[in-house]
């Protein structure tokens, strides 16, 4: 008696991007370095841009608080800086021979974002201290 299975049918990737070893190097390097870069950039406070929503002003780099301008937003800048640096590293990885990039441990892709969470929680200490004082 035969048994049918509903396990997903695995076929060869149809997209040329998915078959490309260079894209593999880019994607894995980008995703591994991204969480690390994000934490470092946020810690060192290197936003690519600063946005002032109250006056709809966008400036390059970090612009500290100014009178009568409302709050500034740095998160866009941190994210953009992270994407640019991670993409640059990904492009460098594309230039490295495949025999070297194949050795990058794939589990780092999901371990680094988990390791980033405690740092992110710590970086929000301002909020937790205010909450604790209540």
């Amino acid at each position: 008696m035969s048994t049918t299975t509903t396990a997903p049918v695995m076929t060869q990737p149809t997209s040329s991007l998915a078959r490309s070893s260079k894209f593999r190097a880019f994607a894995i390097t980008f995703s591994i370095s991204g969480p690390v870069i994000y934490c470092v950039i946020q810690h060192l406070n290197y936003p690519l841009v600063t946005y002032w929503p109250a006056i709809e002003r966008l400036v390059w780099g970090l612009e500290a608080a100014r009178p009568n301008s409302g709050p500034n937003m740095l998160w866009y800048g941190w994210t953009l800086t992270t994407i640019i640096i991670a993409a640059a590293l990904g492009i460098v990885a594309m230039l490295i021979p495949e025999r070297i990039t194949k050795k990058i441990p794939l589990w780092l892709v999901w371990v680094f974002p988990i390791l980033a969470i405690p740092y992110v929680v710590y970086s929000l200490m301002y909020w937790w201290r205010l909450a604790a004082r209540q």
């Binding site: 998915a18 894209f23 593999r24 880019f26 994607a27 894995i28 980008f30 995703s31 591994i32 991204g34 969480p35 994000y38 998160w75 941190w78 994210t79 992270t82 994407i83 991670a86 990904g90 892709v109 999901w110 974002p113 980033a116 969470i117 992110v120």
Partner: peptide, 13 residues
């Protein structure tokens, strides 16, 4: 933001 940077590897896998 941390999730966003995972997308290229996620898609490739």
């Amino acid at each position: 933001s941390l999730g966003l940077v995972l997308l290229p590897a996620y898609w490739y896998f």
